[in-house]
Write a protein that binds this DNA or RNA. Structure first.
Lengths: 214, 214
DNA sequence: TAGATTGTTAATCGATTAACAATC
DNA sequence: TAGATTGTTAATCGATTAACAATC
């Protein structure tokens, strides 16, 4: 059976729907129309309906969408109904920041280990999560399920470690190194967070804004 | 004179061009054609030429682009030719990670102060950058130029602090809180980094990949 | 039933790619 | 000059918005 490919533009919006629906649940809202949601989120109602209908008909004519049901369905679409174990390579500030971010666990993303090359860090724990030495990586991955590896080390080392992880059977990488990974196995899912790119985009928009306002 | 609006799709790609050109300079490459660059970056040569020509003709027929010149021009477009002072609100792991990220300074983004509400942090410095108490914010902004405020505190406090910053004359916010800011002044530039959104997108693509590979 | 609102098709808009004349 | 490659226009493709029949 042919699966229709859903564009990344749509996928990028799904977590945002999920977030707003979560807030609606907190506010005790039971149902919502695409039009009401549209007003809150600053997108067109048409886009909301189109986006959702990529995955199925979650609404009901004349009624709208049941908030809790839609929230759960989007959760399933995003794979949040199952636990993802994450290891973090690089136990510097950013790595530790990720380990401390409790919010991820509520979404099913559990950081199970940190790795670093600095011997001074051996055995230290962050929120109960142990920092391992990088040479224990093979051993660790042999004994524990790892779904995602987050890379927070300098870019010079990123390619080598990424490929090492891939050869250990890890097929998903959350990349914070400031480089586009060059992987031997093309069947690996990579999601990059390029902080300096984000900052440069902000900087461009600052300039643009200045010009606009004279 | 009418300025043509350049789409954010184009702007998002500019930092990536900048990054690749920087690498070419490091490798001692003097000139490059859109076609060669296209091969390295996995985009079409046509897109490269279109993107660049939004800002001006930086190339030369029969020759291509001078790497160093193009690098500098893109830097100017992105506003990297001037210093941006950043203050970070929230001196937790993420705030400190940003303060430690030396790379930003090379791009002209200088973190000048951190702010937190935790009295235990008063006076501590991170890489020489002082942690201030949040109630010193008004005083600090009165005495120092601040171009960008990075928000790394919990989402519950984000809106209030963002609006406080805006009323202090800060017109650019780099938002790490897991919320879409609701600002009183619409003339503020906001760039958000939603880490959990990024993780959810990764998770979706993991699922998709699993299905594809059986 | 009448009103509301979805699901879905059609129309529009914008972004990407292709093509090629201009020109170094 | 001949060859290469840009700048730019035209063609295509995809994503967004509008419209409305289906239906709760």
């Amino acid at each position: 059976m042919e699966e229709k490919e859903i564009s990344q533009a749509v996928i990028r919006r799904m977590p945002r729907y999920y977030r707003y629906l979560g807030e609606l649940i907190e506010d005790g809202v039971e149902r919502i129309s695409s039009n009401d949601l549209s007003g809150r989120m600053n997108v067109t109602a048409s886009q909301i309906r189109q986006d959702l209908n990529n995955f199925g008909g979650f609404g009901q004519q004349g009624y709208g969408y049941n908030v809790k049901y839609l929230y759960e369905e989007i959760g399933k679409i995003l794979g949040l109904n199952q636990q993802h174990n994450i290891i973090v390579i690089g136990a510097g500030n950013l790595g530790q920041a990720l380990a401390n971010y409790v919010k991820f666990e509520k979404l099913g993303f559990v950081i199970t280990a940190l790795f670093d090359v600095n011997p001074a860090m051996e055995g230290i724990t962050v929120r109960g999560i142990k920092i391992h030495m990088l040479n224990e990586l093979e051993d660790y991955c042999g004994k524990n399920r790892v779904d995602i590896a987050a890379l927070t080390m300098p870019k010079a080392k990123a390619d080598a470690i990424a490929n090492r992880l891939v050869s250990l059977g890890i097929h998903a990488i959350w990349n914070f190194a400031h480089v586009d990974l060059d992987l031997i196995d093309k069947d690996v899912v990579v999601e990059s967070v390029h902080l300096s790119d984000s900052l440069m985009q902000l900087s461009y928009n600052i300039e643009k804004n200045k010009k606009k306002n004279g």
